[in-house]
Design a protein around this nucleic acid. Structure first.
Lengths: 219, 219
DNA sequence: GATTGCTCTGACCGATCGGTCAATGTGGTC
DNA sequence: GACCACATTGACCGATCGGTCAGAGCAATC
Protein backbone atom coordinates (compact mmCIF):
# COMPACT_ATOMS: atom_id res chain seq x y z
CA UNK A 1 0.00 0.00 0.00
CA UNK A 2 2.71 2.42 0.91
CA UNK A 3 5.21 1.37 -1.70
CA UNK A 4 4.34 2.46 -5.20
CA UNK A 5 5.37 -0.20 -7.69
CA UNK A 6 6.04 1.43 -11.01
CA UNK A 7 7.09 -1.64 -12.99
CA UNK A 8 3.92 -3.69 -13.10
CA UNK A 9 1.75 -1.39 -15.22
CA UNK A 10 -1.06 -3.90 -14.95
CA UNK A 11 -3.70 -1.86 -16.71
CA UNK A 12 -1.45 -0.18 -19.23
CA UNK A 13 -2.96 0.64 -22.56
CA UNK A 14 -0.74 -1.82 -24.35
CA UNK A 15 -1.76 -4.73 -22.17
CA UNK A 16 -5.43 -4.01 -22.67
CA UNK A 17 -5.04 -3.72 -26.40
CA UNK A 18 -3.24 -7.03 -26.53
CA UNK A 19 -5.98 -8.78 -24.60
CA UNK A 20 -8.60 -7.30 -26.93
CA UNK A 21 -6.63 -8.43 -29.97
CA UNK A 22 -6.32 -11.92 -28.56
CA UNK A 23 -10.04 -12.14 -27.84
CA UNK A 24 -10.96 -10.72 -31.24
CA UNK A 25 -8.62 -13.10 -33.05
CA UNK A 26 -10.36 -16.02 -31.45
CA UNK A 27 -13.88 -14.85 -32.29
CA UNK A 28 -13.09 -13.67 -35.83
CA UNK A 29 -11.22 -16.88 -36.62
CA UNK A 30 -14.22 -18.98 -35.68
CA UNK A 31 -17.02 -17.00 -37.30
CA UNK A 32 -15.44 -14.74 -39.88
CA UNK A 33 -15.86 -11.00 -40.18
CA UNK A 34 -19.63 -10.91 -40.60
CA UNK A 35 -20.31 -13.68 -38.11
CA UNK A 36 -18.27 -12.18 -35.30
CA UNK A 37 -19.98 -9.71 -32.96
CA UNK A 38 -18.35 -7.04 -30.85
CA UNK A 39 -20.38 -8.28 -27.90
CA UNK A 40 -18.84 -11.75 -28.22
CA UNK A 41 -15.36 -10.22 -28.43
CA UNK A 42 -16.08 -8.04 -25.40
CA UNK A 43 -17.30 -11.05 -23.40
CA UNK A 44 -14.21 -13.04 -24.39
CA UNK A 45 -11.99 -10.16 -23.29
CA UNK A 46 -13.97 -9.55 -20.10
CA UNK A 47 -14.63 -5.93 -20.99
CA UNK A 48 -17.72 -3.85 -21.76
CA UNK A 49 -18.50 -3.57 -25.43
CA UNK A 50 -18.02 0.20 -25.48
CA UNK A 51 -14.48 -0.35 -24.25
CA UNK A 52 -13.61 -2.38 -27.34
CA UNK A 53 -14.71 0.49 -29.56
CA UNK A 54 -12.91 3.01 -27.40
CA UNK A 55 -9.60 1.22 -28.00
CA UNK A 56 -10.11 -0.03 -31.53
CA UNK A 57 -12.35 2.56 -33.15
CA UNK A 58 -14.52 0.21 -35.16
CA UNK A 59 -15.10 -3.44 -35.96
CA UNK A 60 -13.42 -3.04 -39.32
CA UNK A 61 -10.35 -1.28 -37.88
CA UNK A 62 -9.96 -4.07 -35.33
CA UNK A 63 -10.25 -6.70 -38.04
CA UNK A 64 -7.76 -5.04 -40.36
CA UNK A 65 -5.32 -4.65 -37.50
CA UNK A 66 -5.51 -8.39 -36.85
CA UNK A 67 -4.91 -9.16 -40.51
CA UNK A 68 -1.88 -6.88 -40.57
CA UNK A 69 -0.45 -8.45 -37.45
CA UNK A 70 -0.85 -11.92 -38.90
CA UNK A 71 0.70 -11.01 -42.21
CA UNK A 72 3.71 -9.43 -40.54
CA UNK A 73 4.50 -12.78 -38.96
CA UNK A 74 5.09 -14.21 -42.41
CA UNK A 75 7.61 -11.72 -43.63
CA UNK A 76 10.68 -13.68 -42.64
CA UNK A 77 9.67 -16.91 -44.37
CA UNK A 78 11.84 -17.94 -47.34
CA UNK A 79 13.43 -14.52 -47.18
CA UNK A 80 17.02 -15.31 -48.02
CA UNK A 81 17.04 -18.05 -50.61
CA UNK A 82 19.25 -17.86 -53.70
CA UNK A 83 19.86 -19.97 -56.79
CA UNK A 84 22.88 -21.33 -54.94
CA UNK A 85 20.88 -22.53 -51.94
CA UNK A 86 20.40 -26.22 -51.28
CA UNK A 87 16.80 -27.06 -52.29
CA UNK A 88 16.46 -29.85 -49.75
CA UNK A 89 17.54 -27.64 -46.90
CA UNK A 90 15.39 -24.73 -48.02
CA UNK A 91 12.21 -26.71 -48.61
CA UNK A 92 12.72 -28.66 -45.42
CA UNK A 93 13.03 -25.43 -43.46
CA UNK A 94 10.05 -24.01 -45.32
CA UNK A 95 7.87 -26.95 -44.31
CA UNK A 96 8.93 -26.82 -40.68
CA UNK A 97 8.67 -23.04 -40.44
CA UNK A 98 5.16 -23.01 -41.84
CA UNK A 99 4.17 -25.86 -39.57
CA UNK A 100 5.54 -24.07 -36.50
CA UNK A 101 3.89 -20.79 -37.47
CA UNK A 102 0.54 -22.52 -37.79
CA UNK A 103 0.95 -24.17 -34.42
CA UNK A 104 2.08 -20.96 -32.77
CA UNK A 105 -0.69 -18.76 -34.18
CA UNK A 106 -3.64 -21.06 -34.81
CA UNK A 107 -6.24 -18.33 -34.42
CA UNK A 108 -4.35 -15.99 -36.72
CA UNK A 109 -4.07 -18.70 -39.34
CA UNK A 110 -7.77 -19.45 -39.14
CA UNK A 111 -8.56 -15.76 -39.35
CA UNK A 112 -6.58 -15.59 -42.56
CA UNK A 113 -8.37 -18.65 -43.90
CA UNK A 114 -11.79 -17.19 -43.13
CA UNK A 115 -10.84 -13.99 -44.91
CA UNK A 116 -9.81 -15.92 -48.03
CA UNK A 117 -12.98 -18.04 -47.88
CA UNK A 118 -15.07 -14.87 -47.84
CA UNK A 119 -13.37 -13.84 -51.08
CA UNK A 120 -10.55 -11.82 -49.49
CA UNK A 121 -12.44 -8.50 -49.48
CA UNK A 122 -9.77 -6.87 -47.29
CA UNK A 123 -6.75 -8.67 -48.75
CA UNK A 124 -7.27 -8.43 -52.49
CA UNK A 125 -4.58 -5.81 -52.90
CA UNK A 126 -2.10 -7.72 -50.78
CA UNK A 127 -2.71 -11.00 -52.64
CA UNK A 128 -2.41 -9.48 -56.10
CA UNK A 129 0.52 -7.29 -55.03
CA UNK A 130 3.07 -8.19 -52.38
CA UNK A 131 2.22 -11.86 -52.12
CA UNK A 132 2.12 -12.30 -55.86
CA UNK A 133 5.58 -10.79 -56.17
CA UNK A 134 6.79 -12.97 -53.32
CA UNK A 135 5.61 -16.11 -55.10
CA UNK A 136 6.98 -14.99 -58.45
CA UNK A 137 10.47 -14.32 -57.09
CA UNK A 138 10.63 -17.61 -55.18
CA UNK A 139 9.29 -19.48 -58.18
CA UNK A 140 12.06 -18.00 -60.33
CA UNK A 141 14.72 -19.29 -57.95
CA UNK A 142 13.15 -22.74 -57.74
CA UNK A 143 13.06 -22.88 -61.53
CA UNK A 144 16.79 -22.21 -61.58
CA UNK A 145 17.33 -25.12 -59.21
CA UNK A 146 15.56 -27.32 -61.73
CA UNK A 147 17.68 -25.95 -64.57
CA UNK A 148 20.80 -26.73 -62.55
CA UNK A 149 19.58 -30.29 -62.14
CA UNK A 150 19.22 -29.98 -58.38
CA UNK A 151 15.61 -31.13 -58.60
CA UNK A 152 12.91 -32.26 -61.00
CA UNK A 153 11.35 -29.78 -63.38
CA UNK A 154 8.10 -29.23 -61.51
CA UNK A 155 5.97 -26.08 -61.59
CA UNK A 156 7.23 -24.03 -58.62
CA UNK A 157 3.87 -22.39 -58.10
CA UNK A 158 2.13 -25.71 -57.53
CA UNK A 159 4.97 -26.72 -55.24
CA UNK A 160 4.55 -23.62 -53.10
CA UNK A 161 0.79 -24.12 -52.96
CA UNK A 162 1.34 -27.75 -52.00
CA UNK A 163 3.50 -26.87 -49.03
CA UNK A 164 1.16 -24.09 -47.97
CA UNK A 165 -1.91 -26.27 -48.08
CA UNK A 166 -0.35 -29.35 -46.52
CA UNK A 167 0.93 -27.45 -43.50
CA UNK A 168 -2.03 -25.13 -43.07
CA UNK A 169 -4.35 -28.11 -43.04
CA UNK A 170 -3.32 -29.09 -39.53
CA UNK A 171 -4.25 -25.74 -38.04
CA UNK A 172 -7.25 -24.70 -40.08
CA UNK A 173 -8.80 -28.14 -40.20
CA UNK A 174 -7.77 -28.95 -36.65
CA UNK A 175 -11.39 -29.75 -35.80
CA UNK A 176 -11.45 -32.36 -38.55
CA UNK A 177 -8.01 -33.74 -37.77
CA UNK A 178 -8.88 -33.98 -34.09
CA UNK A 179 -12.15 -35.71 -34.77
CA UNK A 180 -10.49 -38.28 -37.02
CA UNK A 181 -7.45 -38.93 -34.87
CA UNK A 182 -9.57 -39.00 -31.73
CA UNK A 183 -7.62 -36.51 -29.68
CA UNK A 184 -8.15 -32.85 -28.93
CA UNK A 185 -4.71 -31.52 -29.79
CA UNK A 186 -1.75 -32.76 -31.76
CA UNK A 187 1.21 -33.84 -29.64
CA UNK A 188 4.81 -32.85 -30.22
CA UNK A 189 5.40 -36.33 -31.61
CA UNK A 190 2.50 -35.94 -34.04
CA UNK A 191 3.91 -32.68 -35.34
CA UNK A 192 7.37 -34.16 -35.75
CA UNK A 193 5.91 -37.19 -37.50
CA UNK A 194 3.95 -35.00 -39.89
CA UNK A 195 6.99 -32.82 -40.63
CA UNK A 196 9.11 -35.84 -41.42
CA UNK A 197 6.38 -37.28 -43.63
CA UNK A 198 5.99 -34.06 -45.59
CA UNK A 199 9.76 -33.62 -45.96
CA UNK A 200 10.20 -37.16 -47.14
CA UNK A 201 7.32 -37.20 -49.63
CA UNK A 202 7.71 -33.73 -51.07
CA UNK A 203 11.50 -33.77 -51.35
CA UNK A 204 11.59 -37.25 -52.80
CA UNK A 205 8.64 -36.38 -55.01
CA UNK A 206 10.59 -33.46 -56.44
CA UNK A 207 13.74 -35.51 -56.95
CA UNK A 208 15.65 -33.87 -54.08
CA UNK A 209 17.90 -35.88 -51.78
CA UNK A 210 17.33 -35.31 -48.09
CA UNK A 211 19.66 -32.74 -46.54
CA UNK A 212 22.46 -34.38 -44.56
CA UNK A 213 22.61 -31.87 -41.75
CA UNK A 214 19.43 -31.59 -39.71
CA UNK A 215 17.54 -28.33 -40.28
CA UNK A 216 17.64 -25.31 -38.04
CA UNK A 217 16.17 -25.99 -34.62
CA UNK A 218 12.84 -24.22 -34.61
CA UNK A 219 12.07 -22.08 -31.57
CA UNK B 1 -52.07 -18.16 -74.28
CA UNK B 2 -54.53 -20.74 -75.48
CA UNK B 3 -52.24 -23.72 -75.31
CA UNK B 4 -51.57 -25.04 -71.83
CA UNK B 5 -48.04 -26.37 -71.53
CA UNK B 6 -47.95 -29.01 -68.84
CA UNK B 7 -44.34 -30.07 -69.15
CA UNK B 8 -42.51 -26.98 -67.99
CA UNK B 9 -43.52 -27.02 -64.30
CA UNK B 10 -41.74 -23.77 -63.84
CA UNK B 11 -42.74 -23.10 -60.26
CA UNK B 12 -42.71 -26.67 -58.96
CA UNK B 13 -41.79 -27.13 -55.35
CA UNK B 14 -38.62 -28.99 -56.20
CA UNK B 15 -37.35 -26.32 -58.52
CA UNK B 16 -37.89 -23.62 -55.91
CA UNK B 17 -36.16 -25.65 -53.22
CA UNK B 18 -33.18 -26.22 -55.48
CA UNK B 19 -32.85 -22.52 -56.21
CA UNK B 20 -33.01 -21.75 -52.49
CA UNK B 21 -30.36 -24.36 -51.74
CA UNK B 22 -28.11 -22.94 -54.44
CA UNK B 23 -28.49 -19.40 -53.11
CA UNK B 24 -27.97 -20.51 -49.51
CA UNK B 25 -24.87 -22.52 -50.40
CA UNK B 26 -23.32 -19.44 -51.92
CA UNK B 27 -24.06 -17.17 -48.97
CA UNK B 28 -23.17 -19.70 -46.26
CA UNK B 29 -19.93 -20.63 -48.01
CA UNK B 30 -18.79 -17.02 -48.04
CA UNK B 31 -19.78 -15.94 -44.54
CA UNK B 32 -20.26 -19.10 -42.49
CA UNK B 33 -23.31 -20.01 -40.47
CA UNK B 34 -23.36 -17.00 -38.17
CA UNK B 35 -22.34 -14.52 -40.82
CA UNK B 36 -24.98 -15.53 -43.33
CA UNK B 37 -28.39 -13.85 -43.12
CA UNK B 38 -31.68 -15.18 -44.39
CA UNK B 39 -32.27 -11.83 -46.04
CA UNK B 40 -29.08 -12.21 -48.07
CA UNK B 41 -30.09 -15.73 -49.09
CA UNK B 42 -33.56 -14.52 -50.04
CA UNK B 43 -32.12 -11.69 -52.14
CA UNK B 44 -29.76 -14.12 -53.85
CA UNK B 45 -32.66 -16.46 -54.62
CA UNK B 46 -34.94 -13.61 -55.69
CA UNK B 47 -37.61 -14.52 -53.16
CA UNK B 48 -39.13 -12.86 -50.09
CA UNK B 49 -37.48 -13.85 -46.84
CA UNK B 50 -40.64 -15.45 -45.46
CA UNK B 51 -40.64 -17.77 -48.45
CA UNK B 52 -37.26 -19.19 -47.47
CA UNK B 53 -38.56 -20.09 -44.04
CA UNK B 54 -41.76 -21.51 -45.50
CA UNK B 55 -39.75 -24.00 -47.55
CA UNK B 56 -36.86 -24.69 -45.20
CA UNK B 57 -38.33 -24.27 -41.74
CA UNK B 58 -35.39 -22.53 -40.12
CA UNK B 59 -31.90 -21.24 -40.79
CA UNK B 60 -30.40 -24.21 -39.01
CA UNK B 61 -32.48 -26.76 -40.93
CA UNK B 62 -31.42 -25.16 -44.19
CA UNK B 63 -27.79 -25.22 -43.16
CA UNK B 64 -27.86 -28.84 -42.04
CA UNK B 65 -29.55 -29.83 -45.27
CA UNK B 66 -26.73 -28.23 -47.24
CA UNK B 67 -24.11 -30.05 -45.16
CA UNK B 68 -25.88 -33.36 -45.72
CA UNK B 69 -26.09 -32.78 -49.44
CA UNK B 70 -22.41 -31.95 -49.63
CA UNK B 71 -21.36 -34.96 -47.60
CA UNK B 72 -23.43 -37.32 -49.73
CA UNK B 73 -21.37 -36.28 -52.73
CA UNK B 74 -18.32 -37.81 -51.09
CA UNK B 75 -19.66 -41.25 -50.45
CA UNK B 76 -18.34 -42.83 -53.63
CA UNK B 77 -14.74 -41.70 -53.17
CA UNK B 78 -12.18 -44.47 -52.53
CA UNK B 79 -15.12 -46.82 -52.00
CA UNK B 80 -13.84 -49.96 -53.61
CA UNK B 81 -10.15 -50.22 -52.85
CA UNK B 82 -8.59 -53.46 -51.61
CA UNK B 83 -5.14 -54.64 -50.52
CA UNK B 84 -4.78 -56.04 -54.06
CA UNK B 85 -5.43 -52.69 -55.76
CA UNK B 86 -2.67 -50.86 -57.56
CA UNK B 87 -1.61 -47.96 -55.29
CA UNK B 88 -0.60 -45.74 -58.18
CA UNK B 89 -3.90 -46.13 -59.92
CA UNK B 90 -5.91 -45.67 -56.72
CA UNK B 91 -4.06 -42.59 -55.48
CA UNK B 92 -4.05 -41.08 -58.94
CA UNK B 93 -7.81 -41.53 -59.19
CA UNK B 94 -8.20 -40.20 -55.65
CA UNK B 95 -6.33 -37.01 -56.50
CA UNK B 96 -8.30 -36.42 -59.71
CA UNK B 97 -11.65 -37.27 -58.15
CA UNK B 98 -11.10 -34.86 -55.26
CA UNK B 99 -9.93 -32.19 -57.64
CA UNK B 100 -12.97 -32.61 -59.86
CA UNK B 101 -15.34 -32.62 -56.91
CA UNK B 102 -13.88 -29.38 -55.66
CA UNK B 103 -14.22 -27.79 -59.08
CA UNK B 104 -17.76 -29.06 -59.53
CA UNK B 105 -19.04 -27.99 -56.11
CA UNK B 106 -16.90 -25.03 -55.08
CA UNK B 107 -19.57 -23.50 -52.86
CA UNK B 108 -20.27 -26.79 -51.14
CA UNK B 109 -16.58 -27.31 -50.50
CA UNK B 110 -16.23 -23.84 -49.03
CA UNK B 111 -19.31 -24.40 -46.90
CA UNK B 112 -17.67 -27.49 -45.49
CA UNK B 113 -14.45 -25.59 -44.86
CA UNK B 114 -16.27 -22.79 -43.03
CA UNK B 115 -18.02 -25.35 -40.85
CA UNK B 116 -14.70 -26.94 -39.89
CA UNK B 117 -13.15 -23.52 -39.24
CA UNK B 118 -15.97 -22.72 -36.83
CA UNK B 119 -15.05 -25.85 -34.88
CA UNK B 120 -17.45 -28.19 -36.69
CA UNK B 121 -20.39 -27.62 -34.29
CA UNK B 122 -22.78 -29.48 -36.63
CA UNK B 123 -20.33 -32.09 -37.87
CA UNK B 124 -18.60 -33.32 -34.73
CA UNK B 125 -20.48 -36.59 -34.72
CA UNK B 126 -19.82 -37.22 -38.39
CA UNK B 127 -16.11 -36.48 -38.09
CA UNK B 128 -15.58 -38.66 -35.02
CA UNK B 129 -17.86 -41.38 -36.43
CA UNK B 130 -18.33 -42.16 -40.09
CA UNK B 131 -15.38 -40.18 -41.40
CA UNK B 132 -13.06 -41.53 -38.75
CA UNK B 133 -14.01 -45.10 -39.68
CA UNK B 134 -13.60 -44.25 -43.35
CA UNK B 135 -10.06 -43.00 -42.75
CA UNK B 136 -9.16 -45.93 -40.50
CA UNK B 137 -10.27 -48.54 -43.03
CA UNK B 138 -8.48 -46.86 -45.92
CA UNK B 139 -5.38 -46.39 -43.80
CA UNK B 140 -5.37 -50.10 -43.01
CA UNK B 141 -5.39 -50.97 -46.70
CA UNK B 142 -2.65 -48.47 -47.51
CA UNK B 143 -0.55 -49.96 -44.73
CA UNK B 144 -0.90 -53.34 -46.35
CA UNK B 145 0.37 -51.90 -49.60
CA UNK B 146 3.46 -50.79 -47.74
CA UNK B 147 3.90 -54.22 -46.16
CA UNK B 148 3.65 -55.78 -49.61
CA UNK B 149 6.40 -53.46 -50.80
CA UNK B 150 4.17 -51.69 -53.27
CA UNK B 151 5.08 -48.33 -51.73
CA UNK B 152 7.16 -46.69 -49.01
CA UNK B 153 6.21 -47.12 -45.38
CA UNK B 154 4.58 -43.74 -44.86
CA UNK B 155 1.86 -42.94 -42.34
CA UNK B 156 -1.38 -43.40 -44.33
CA UNK B 157 -3.24 -40.82 -42.29
CA UNK B 158 -0.80 -38.08 -43.20
CA UNK B 159 -0.97 -39.22 -46.80
CA UNK B 160 -4.76 -38.94 -46.86
CA UNK B 161 -4.59 -35.50 -45.23
CA UNK B 162 -1.96 -34.44 -47.75
CA UNK B 163 -4.17 -35.30 -50.71
CA UNK B 164 -7.20 -33.72 -49.09
CA UNK B 165 -5.44 -30.47 -48.33
CA UNK B 166 -3.55 -30.18 -51.61
CA UNK B 167 -6.70 -30.58 -53.71
CA UNK B 168 -9.04 -28.58 -51.51
CA UNK B 169 -6.63 -25.68 -51.59
CA UNK B 170 -7.59 -24.80 -55.14
CA UNK B 171 -11.27 -24.40 -54.33
CA UNK B 172 -11.23 -23.03 -50.80
CA UNK B 173 -8.32 -20.70 -51.38
CA UNK B 174 -9.44 -19.82 -54.88
CA UNK B 175 -9.39 -16.14 -53.96
CA UNK B 176 -5.72 -16.42 -52.98
CA UNK B 177 -4.77 -18.60 -55.93
CA UNK B 178 -6.54 -16.23 -58.32
CA UNK B 179 -4.87 -13.20 -56.83
CA UNK B 180 -1.44 -14.75 -57.11
CA UNK B 181 -1.84 -16.24 -60.58
CA UNK B 182 -3.52 -13.07 -61.81
CA UNK B 183 -6.60 -14.66 -63.33
CA UNK B 184 -10.13 -15.02 -62.09
CA UNK B 185 -10.66 -18.71 -62.67
CA UNK B 186 -8.41 -21.69 -63.29
CA UNK B 187 -8.44 -22.97 -66.86
CA UNK B 188 -8.81 -26.60 -67.88
CA UNK B 189 -5.09 -26.60 -68.62
CA UNK B 190 -4.29 -25.30 -65.14
CA UNK B 191 -6.33 -28.06 -63.53
CA UNK B 192 -4.69 -30.72 -65.64
CA UNK B 193 -1.26 -29.28 -64.89
CA UNK B 194 -1.98 -29.31 -61.16
CA UNK B 195 -3.29 -32.88 -61.27
CA UNK B 196 -0.20 -34.08 -63.07
CA UNK B 197 2.05 -32.27 -60.62
CA UNK B 198 0.29 -33.76 -57.60
CA UNK B 199 0.31 -37.24 -59.10
CA UNK B 200 3.95 -37.02 -59.95
CA UNK B 201 5.16 -35.61 -56.63
CA UNK B 202 2.96 -37.64 -54.29
CA UNK B 203 3.34 -40.96 -56.07
CA UNK B 204 7.07 -40.58 -56.52
CA UNK B 205 7.32 -39.28 -52.97
CA UNK B 206 5.68 -42.45 -51.69
CA UNK B 207 7.82 -44.70 -53.83
CA UNK B 208 5.05 -45.62 -56.25
CA UNK B 209 5.67 -45.94 -59.97
CA UNK B 210 3.24 -44.04 -62.18
CA UNK B 211 0.36 -46.18 -63.47
CA UNK B 212 0.88 -47.18 -67.10
CA UNK B 213 -2.72 -46.91 -68.19
CA UNK B 214 -4.22 -43.41 -67.90
CA UNK B 215 -6.80 -43.09 -65.12
CA UNK B 216 -10.55 -43.18 -65.59
CA UNK B 217 -11.78 -40.25 -67.65
CA UNK B 218 -13.52 -37.99 -65.17
CA UNK B 219 -17.02 -36.82 -66.14
C1' DG C 1 -9.19 22.08 -4.33
C1' DA C 2 -10.00 23.55 -8.88
C1' DT C 3 -8.61 22.29 -13.47
C1' DT C 4 -7.25 19.26 -17.00
C1' DG C 5 -6.94 15.13 -19.89
C1' DC C 6 -7.59 10.46 -20.30
C1' DT C 7 -10.09 6.17 -19.14
C1' DC C 8 -14.18 3.93 -18.76
C1' DT C 9 -19.07 2.45 -19.43
C1' DG C 10 -24.35 2.40 -19.03
C1' DA C 11 -27.77 3.93 -21.84
C1' DC C 12 -29.26 4.60 -26.03
C1' DC C 13 -29.73 4.86 -31.47
C1' DG C 14 -31.45 3.08 -36.02
C1' DA C 15 -30.78 -1.09 -38.58
C1' DT C 16 -30.96 -5.79 -39.04
C1' DC C 17 -31.31 -10.41 -37.09
C1' DG C 18 -34.25 -15.13 -37.15
C1' DG C 19 -38.77 -16.24 -36.88
C1' DT C 20 -44.20 -15.85 -36.61
C1' DC C 21 -48.59 -14.97 -38.35
C1' DA C 22 -52.67 -13.48 -40.46
C1' DA C 23 -54.31 -12.32 -44.84
C1' DT C 24 -54.54 -13.17 -49.51
C1' DG C 25 -53.86 -15.82 -53.78
C1' DT C 26 -54.28 -20.07 -56.48
C1' DG C 27 -55.64 -24.45 -58.56
C1' DG C 28 -58.33 -28.52 -58.20
C1' DT C 29 -62.65 -31.18 -56.74
C1' DC C 30 -67.35 -31.76 -56.16
C1' DG D 1 -69.47 -21.26 -56.90
C1' DA D 2 -68.53 -23.21 -52.51
C1' DC D 3 -64.89 -25.54 -50.50
C1' DC D 4 -60.25 -26.91 -49.44
C1' DA D 5 -55.25 -27.52 -49.25
C1' DC D 6 -51.41 -25.39 -50.16
C1' DA D 7 -48.48 -21.18 -51.71
C1' DT D 8 -47.17 -16.64 -50.95
C1' DT D 9 -45.79 -12.56 -48.51
C1' DG D 10 -46.17 -7.91 -46.00
C1' DA D 11 -46.16 -6.69 -41.47
C1' DC D 12 -44.64 -7.41 -37.28
C1' DC D 13 -42.06 -9.48 -32.89
C1' DG D 14 -38.24 -9.39 -29.40
C1' DA D 15 -33.31 -9.76 -29.64
C1' DT D 16 -29.09 -8.35 -31.20
C1' DC D 17 -26.20 -5.77 -34.42
C1' DG D 18 -22.32 -1.83 -34.86
C1' DG D 19 -21.76 2.49 -33.21
C1' DT D 20 -22.48 7.09 -30.40
C1' DC D 21 -22.43 9.84 -26.46
C1' DA D 22 -22.82 12.06 -22.11
C1' DG D 23 -21.09 11.72 -17.92
C1' DA D 24 -18.70 9.33 -14.04
C1' DG D 25 -14.04 8.05 -12.35
C1' DC D 26 -9.36 9.22 -11.64
C1' DA D 27 -4.52 10.63 -11.44
C1' DA D 28 -1.44 14.51 -12.28
C1' DT D 29 -0.59 19.57 -12.40
C1' DC D 30 -1.01 24.04 -10.70
Amino acid sequence: MTAVIATQENTGRDRIEQSILAAAEQVFSQHGYRGASLQAIADQAGLPKANILYYMGSKQALYVRLLDRMMSRWNAVLEDITPESDPGRVLSDFIRTKMVLGQRYPEGSKLFAAEILAGAPFLNEYLAGELRDWVASRAAIIRQWAVQGKMDDVDPRWLIFLIWSATQHYTEYSAQVSGILGRDVLSEEDIESICQFLEQVILKGCGISMPKIPPIPHE
